[in-house]
Amino acid sequence: MAKLTLNDLRKLRDQKQKAIEKRDPSNKDAQIIVGMGTCGIAAGAKETFNAIIDELDAKGISHVLVRQTGCMGLCHSEPTVEVIVPNMPVVIYGNVNAEVGKQIVNDHIVNKHLIDNHICDKPAMDIVR
């Protein structure tokens, strides 16, 4: 990519903002966001991340985008995973090990069930989108 001019930057921002609002990058309507700060990784977020991707592959699910993000502050509950599925409440799960990761794919994504005992509430209003 070439260096941006001021207008390029503004255009890029508009375009990306829309994409994020739509939450539809490349035909994927659901998202699983794994907290990958040092706290998350130390608590096993990489294993969780891999387990989720493996499980999605195994189940042949292609409409879910798996992303990473930084620490959201819920370090007592790492690894944390945020799940955004259309027509379901946005949920942050805590203490998500590889096993729970698989459960997220099977219960939350496939069966549209929330998972018992792993919901971590949103700590601040502005983290909720």
Binding site: K16, I20, T69, I127
Partner: peptide, 29 residues
């Protein structure tokens, strides 16, 4: 819940830190 107020951590746990586009989308730069 409003006792927390995020300025510094506004993007933490929201964007993918490896993607500059996501930062830009949230009024970055």
């Amino acid at each position: 819940y409003q006792k927390q107020f995020r300025i510094v951590l506004r993007n933490c746990g929201v964007i993918d830190p490896d993607k500059i586009d996501e930062y830009i989308a949230r009024d970055g730069y």
